[in-house]
Write a protein that binds this DNA or RNA. Structure first.
Length: 296
DNA sequence: ATAATTTGACCAAT
DNA sequence: ATTGGTCAAATTAT
C-alpha cells in the first residue's frame, strides 16, 4: 500500500534535513532580531533558546552530511548517535528543556511522523476586525480546528514562502462573533520572505516616532496606525473596520505596560497594494479592479 | 498538469 | 485524558 510512513528515501530525507536546518536558522535570526530591539530588558533570557536552536541546526547539517555519505539506502540508526554533543553545555543550566532530544534524529521514524514541529513561543499579537483583512501576504492554510469555547472554526495559516524562502510567519484566524461579524487574527513570527512584486514588504521596524502615533488613535480614530501606505488609499476603503490591537498572550512573559505594545507593532502592516478582501454585505465596495491595475 | 484546501489522524503540552 | 497545533493524503481549484 505504499504509505509514506516508511522511511523516507535519501533525497527526501536530505531535503528535509536541510529545510529543518534553514528553518531553525531563521528562528535564530528572529530571536536575535527581537532581542536586539528589546534592548536591555531581557537580553540574557533568550540565550539558552538560541543555543538550543544552534544545536538543532548543527544536528540537521550533520544528518544531511551523513545522508550524503551513505548514498541512498540509509540506515538511520547511525545518524542519531552523531549528535553534536559538544558546543559546551553552558554551566548555567539552560532551563530550556533542550533535553534528551535536541537532535530529533531520524531514528525510529517508522512510527514517527516526520518533521513535526510545534509553534514556537515567538511573540504574537492579535488583531480583531469586522472584515477579513487582506494583509498582502500570501498564506497557505494548513489546518483548521474547532476550539473549546468557541462557536467557530479556527483556521491555521503559514506563509506560502515557508518552503521556498524559509519564512516562518504564521497566523490564525478565528471568527469570534457573528452579527456583526468579528474576526480575530493572531500573528506569530514575522515575515522574512520577499515578494517579487513588493520587495519592500519585509522592511525593518518602523521608526519610534511613527510608533508613537499608534497610541493616539484612540481619540482621533484615524486608521493611520501601522500602515506605511498612503492614507488616501486607505481612506478610500471607507469601511473603517474598528480595529483593536490587543496584547494578550506573551503577557505570560513580561508585557505589562502600554509601552511594551510598541515593541511589537513592527511585526505587521498592511499591504493594500494588493486588493482588499471582501467586505461585509452592507458595504460592498469594489476595489479589486482598482488594485489590479497596479499589477495584480 | 500543478497548486491550494479540506480533513482526520497524529503529536506535544497541559 | 483532553486540547490545540500540525501533518499529509485526499479532494478541489486553477
Amino acid at each position: 500500500m505504499e504509505n509514506q510512513n516508511q522511511l523516507p528515501n535519501g533525497k527526501n530525507a536530505m531535503e528535509e534535513e536541510l529545510i529543518r536546518g534553514r528553518d531553525m536558522a531563521n528562528q535564530i535570526l528572529e530571536v536575535l532580531a527581537h532581542d536586539k530591539d528589546e534592548g536591555s530588558t531581557n537580553s540574557k533570557s533568550v540565550l539558552p533558546f538560541v543555543e538550543d536552536l544552534v544545536r538543532k541546526v548543527l544536528c540537521s547539517f550533520t544528518n544531511t552530511l551523513l545522508l550524503l555519505n551513505s548514498n541512498n539506502d540509509v540506515s538511520y540508526e547511525v545518524v542519531a548517535s552523531i549528535a553534536p554533543k559538544h558546543v559546551s553545555s553552558s554551566t548555567s543550566s539552560p532551563k530550556l528543556e533542550s533535553s534528551d532530544e535536541t537532535c530529533k534524529s531520524l531514528m525510529n521514524t517508522k512510527t514517527r511522523r516526520r518533521g513535526y514541529k510545534r509553534k514556537s513561543i515567538a511573540p504574537a499579537w492579535e488583531k480583531d476586525s469586522s472584515i477579513l483583512i487582506e494583509d498582502g501576504y500570501v498564506w497557505r492554510k494548513y489546518g483548521q480546528k474547532m476550539t473549546l469555547n468557541a462557536k467557530y472554526l479556527r483556521s491555521y495559516y503559514r506563509c506560502s514562502h515557508k518552503n521556498d524562502q524559509g519564512c516562518q510567519a504564521m497566523k490564525q484566524v478565528q471568527r469570534i462573533q457573528d452579527n456583526p461579524p468579528l474576526y480575530r487574527t493572531t500573528y506569530y513570527g514575522h515575515h522574512t520572505c520577499r515578494s517579487p512584486l513588493n520587495p519592500e514588504i519585509i522592511l525593518e521596524p518602523i521608526s519610534p516616532s511613527a510608533s508613537s502615533t499608534l497610541l493616539s488613535f484612540n481619540n482621533s480614530f484615524q486608521r493611520q496606525q501601522e500602515s506605511p501606505f498612503p492614507s488616501s488609499l486607505l481612506a478610500s476603503t471607507k469601511q473603517e473596520p474598528v480595529e483593536v490591537i490587543q496584547d494578550y498572550h506573551s503577557a505570560q512573559n513580561q508585557l505589562s505596560s502600554p509601552e511594551d505594545l510598541l515593541l511589537y507593532d513592527y511585526d505587521f502592516f498592511f499591504d493594500y497594494s494588493k486588493r482588499v478582501a471582501s467586505l461585509s454585505s452592507t458595504e460592498t465596495v469594489e476595489f479589486e479592479n482598482v488594485y489590479e491595475q497596479f499589477g495584480f
